[in-house]
Design a protein around this nucleic acid. Sequence first.
DNA 1: ACCTGAACACCGTTCAAGT
DNA 2: ACCTGAACACCGTTCAAGT
Lengths: 233, 233
Amino acid sequence: MGQVPKAQQQEASARRPRLNRDAVLRAGVVLADQVGIDGFTMRTLSQELGVVPMALYKHVANKQELLEGMVDLVWAEVTEPDSGHGWKQAMRVRAASLRSALVTHRWAVGLMEAAGRPGLENLRQHNALLGCLRESGFSFRTTVHVTSLLDAYVYGFALQQKTLSFETPEESAAAAAATRDGESAEAAARYPYLLEVVGELAKEGYDYDAEFAVGLDVLLDGIETLRGSWRDG
Amino acid sequence: MGQVPKAQQQEASARRPRLNRDAVLRAGVVLADQVGIDGFTMRTLSQELGVVPMALYKHVANKQELLEGMVDLVWAEVTEPDSGHGWKQAMRVRAASLRSALVTHRWAVGLMEAAGRPGLENLRQHNALLGCLRESGFSFRTTVHVTSLLDAYVYGFALQQKTLSFETPEESAAAAAATRDGESAEAAARYPYLLEVVGELAKEGYDYDAEFAVGLDVLLDGIETLRGSWRDG
DNA sequence: ACCTGAACACCGTTCAAGT
DNA sequence: ACCTGAACACCGTTCAAGT
């Protein structure tokens, strides 16, 4: 008679095979992906893990540390640059990988640079990036320029893609402005260029991947001119 | 006998000359500048205004709308591009202005693209930006490329500057990693390129303004090659 | 029209216990 | 060693009143 409850208990403990730090962090990433950063609380995460909220504090010091660990898991998804096919191609692949991670985990964009100490995966990733450029003949100084420039571009692009789209939101922005102004005609008079571009894009569409690639190639071409011209030896 | 309290009451009402939406938003910007986004709550803001928390809800619908209004006040600080001295110089001045606003109001960077509908100042600003480029001979398509690219760069750079510095935090990052690893020597073995660059920067220093300008000029030069080459008429 | 007071449903987190 | 329960000090926000 007591065997059925016992079996259920075993099944339950098999379904949640003991909590540890990594399991908490991974569940955090999954939950944040699903509900966004606003709906992500210690309490919802604990509920997802079938555990009482305070149980999490055995594995992470606090929410801040939890988020930092989650961000480092995102960094772990970014592939290290491989200079085998040249630095340009290596930068393209790495930028695409970082962008992909930021698009998948939209909540991470605002946390990557905001949090405290960078995690180990973050350090590993940037060490590899710097190494790829240094081994490709870039000077100290130029290497810093390039990493700063590329990361800024990827972050900024992901930040834009996160909500602002030239396709829909800007359009709805103009629509919203029109609503506020009471009349569409007045909005057209106030923001003629905005409406011009919005109208054109509504017809032609907007491809984020292509847009990102175009901007990145502009960057890489510009970087090529920097190479060797900036007190490099 | 009753005159003193009455005078004090008048003085108090003169010091806080009646709350309105604009006063709430401006006080919000000042408070967020001082305490950061985490310390910024409806309750601390109301306290700063010498009023009970619920009084704010007569002037803003909720915290989200309050933040959106504050962000639009930041946009109002950005100067519109003036194509009088050529589009390149216009873009330089506008990028510097946007960057300046984002550095002054560090809390705004994460909110600019995250919030809901863009505000009127945001629309005005982007309309002027698009107009400057269109009048300088850029096509619809190239104009979209350029605004996307420039904004991404400014956002991303501000995001980096917000916390991550190649001068101090990265250095402390390496130090932190060394601490975690138990030994500095092990960190040097694990992240050699990171430490190389960090060491070099510690000697030479890091100038954000110069770094920003260098990256921006790379962008503008690249953009110049796009001009006229992308199905422009 | 503008402000207040009390209250509600949530947070993150501490602390003393349980097993 | 790991998890729980009750509690504390905070949030944003609603609602009924006050002037």
